[in-house]
């Protein structure tokens, strides 16, 4: 600009704030619409690492066999007698069994045709009872 040309500039030197609320609302609506609250919940299990198989004394195993109709066959350690229970009863059974034998391991074996939810019911009952050592397998001989 020339020295003689000292007319006052009409451009304001401030950022216009009148539309600030509109911009904020625009962004707000965008985030409101795109937000998805994640539903990451479930039953956590820890899988064994490959080749890491541990021998467990047969008397420390509680065999839990899930059948296709959701009925659970229960076999304790080395005994051969099979008890039929419902998945809901397992919570009390586990609590009772684990006080007698703190080294107990739950071996859950599920029939290949049994729906997923029956295995979840059993896992749910065991986790509610505080069981930590749970092995999940597929029932092979039936």
């Amino acid at each position: 600009m020339g020295i003689l040309n000292q007319k006052k500039t009409k451009v304001s030197d401030q950022i216009p704030t009148a539309s600030m609320a509109d911009i904020a609302f625009l962004l707000l609506i965008f985030f409101l619409v795109t937000t998805v609250f994640p539903k990451d919940r479930g039953l956590a299990v820890v899988l064994p690492e490959p080749g890491q198989e541990t021998e467990v004394s047969p008397k420390n195993i509680l065999h839990i066999m899930v059948r296709t109709d959701g009925i659970v066959d229960l076999r304790r350690g080395e005994s051969t007698s099979i008890q039929q229970v419902r998945a809901n009863d397992l919570e009390a059974i586990w609590r009772h069994e684990v006080t007698a034998n703190p080294n107990l391991i739950a071996a859950v074996r599920t029939h290949p045709d049994a729906p997923h939810r029956f295995m979840i019911d059993v896992l749910d009952a065991l986790q509610l009872a505080g069981a930590e050592r749970i092995s999940l397998q597929m029932l092979e001989e039936f």
């Binding site: 299990v45 899988l47 999940l136």
Partner: peptide
Amino acid sequence: QKELVSAGVVRVVFATEL
């Protein structure tokens, strides 16, 4: 589950509803 074991995965969650 077997596929995940062979991939070396350790932590698995079976997603469920409360």
